[in-house]
Amino acid sequence: MTRPFAPARFAPARAAGAFVPDLLLENVEVLAPDGRPILRVARLEAPAGTALGIRGPSGAGKSTLLHVVAGLLPVASGRVMWGDADLAAMTEPARDAFRRARLGLIFQDFLLFEELSAQQNAAIAAAWAPARDRAAIRARAEALLDRFGAPGDRDVASMSGGERQRVSAARALACDPAAILADEPTASLDRENADRLAGDLLAMAREAGRTLIAVSHDPALIASMDQVVQVVDGEVRG
């Protein structure tokens, strides 16, 4: 089921079970600044609520694909559809707004602000959200930190890798996104923490019917996904 994407639906708070769009990439080509093609996607579909794994050798274009899906990279041609919303046809501010409203991102090396507490990091979106939404974002961030077992009042500088990635996951979910995009989320973690995070992410996605797209070299994480695609030499293969 797809429904039109309208700017009015960008509000960050999303009730459980609310609309999650399907993902469709079609005839997508991404060029490097020097004009060299770095990614081609003939067709890639991920129905709403799917856990999609992306694997492939280093430098193959996995992160580029994730950035295209997140609207961080413009494409030279093709369509990047989330429901009826085509990121390829959007301006950069519109892509920012879409990402803000619909997507939550997790990175391999956490990218947390060391000078802020876990709570401040998890609720960072409150800094640019409309004033009326800020309290809700902070409350949700706190609840997520509790659920992930990460202490909210501690500086992230004093946290272990596992704790940091849990803060990062809470930050990705604090705006209640329709989809979670994770770039090597377990790569910096030991096995125990990697398994715990993977379990938490899958549970959080499935509970709310969210789409989860994870780029990973981690066979355990990839094995737990509903659908897996491989990226080789800039080509996406099913």
Binding site: P93, D96, A97, R99, L111, A127, W128, A172
Partner: peptide
Amino acid sequence: ARRFALLRALGAPRRF
């Protein structure tokens, strides 16, 4: 720059 890019990736508008 990387931190600002992170903010943008998380949805922060350029104005932020």
